[in-house]
């Protein structure tokens, strides 16, 4: 298992290569991409901040959980930190398993769990300002 936070663009091909092995009949990847709008409002760039040591620890915990629950052979998670342009990847997850069902389910579990528990924050920049996105905050 490899877990990384990076300030450089993520090379998804490297992650896919690492989970490509003869025993893995199914490989599933998720690529989170910086979208150019938020509900129609143009977004010019994104910024991600992390509590890095704890984020790494939480990502590793999620990866281990997925490995055990779905019997994965390989898990790769890489999250970008800092400023990102439209079209760049904020996160790439690649998992390898003997069969496809486990790969699909584990990949989905990892991204869904990551979004709710890992101390990483997204700031959306618009032409006229910026907002920290806080999904669970009331109001």
């Amino acid at each position: 298992m490899n877990i990384r936070l990076t300030h450089e663009p993520i090379d998804a091909d490297v992650l896919i290569q690492r989970v490509t092995r003869p025993g893995n009949g199914g490989i599933c990847t998720f690529h989170g991409i910086v979208r150019d709008n938020m509900d129609g409002r143009p977004v010019v760039k994104l910024e991600y901040e992390a509590f890095e040591p704890m984020a790494l620890q939480e990502l590793e915990r999620i990866g281990r959980e997925a490995e055990e629950r779905w019997g994965l052979t390989d898990v790769e998670i890489e999250h970008r930190i800092g400023e990102l342009r439209i079209g760049e990847a904020s996160v790439v997850i690649a998992v390898g398993a003997p069969h496809r069902a486990e790969a699909f389910e584990a990949c989905r579990y990892i991204i869904d769990t990551l979004k709710t528990t890992v101390p990483i924050w997204k700031k959306e920049w618009y032409r006229d300002g910026a907002v920290w996105i806080e999904p669970t905050a009331a109001g």
Binding site: T116, W121, E134
Partner: peptide
């Protein structure tokens, strides 16, 4: 002690 605002990593 880290104060953790609602998280929004991922995509």
């Amino acid at each position: 002690l880290a104060v953790i605002p609602p998280v929004s990593g991922g995509a």
